[in-house]
C-alpha cells in the first residue's frame, strides 16, 4: 500500500487526513489521479497547472521533496509514503 497524507488546505479540501492506494511502480502524477478517482474530488486542479506542480505545494516521497527527484514523473513504490502540503510562507 502507498500511504498518502494530506495537511492543511488539502486536508480540508479532501475532508480526510490520509488515503491508501494499492499500487506499485507508479508515477506521482498517476498516483494523484488514482487519489482523485477514489475521493471523487478534483485534486489535480488543486495541485497541477499546465502540467506542472503548482509552486507553493510540497510533495514529499519518504521525506524528500519530489522537486529534487523527477517531479511529477517520480516513481512511487508499494509501501512508500507521500506527504502533501502547502507550506505557509508568511512571517
Amino acid at each position: 500500500m502507498i500511504k498518502i497524507k494530506f495537511y492543511s488546505l488539502l486536508r480540508m479540501f479532501l475532508k480526510q487526513n490520509e488515503i491508501e492506494i494499492n499500487e506499485d511502480n507508479i508515477s506521482v502524477l498517476n498516483l494523484l489521479q488514482k487519489v482523485a478517482e477514489k475521493t471523487n474530488k478534483d485534486l489535480l486542479a488543486e495541485l497541477i497547472e499546465a502540467g506542472k506542480l503548482i509552486p507553493g505545494i510540497i510533495i514529499l516521497l519518504n521525506g524528500r521533496n519530489i522537486y529534487h527527484l523527477e517531479k511529477l514523473d517520480t516513481i512511487v513504490s508499494n509501501s512508500d509514503k507521500i506527504d502533501i502540503f502547502p507550506p505557509g510562507g508568511g512571517g
Binding site: P55, G56, I58, R64, N65, Y67, H68, P87, G88, G89, G90
Partner: peptide, 13 residues
Amino acid sequence: RQIFGDQKDEIEP
C-alpha cells in the same frame, strides 16, 4: 532549499 524546493512567495498572504 531541499525541503521547500521551488517556492513562489505569495504577496501578503
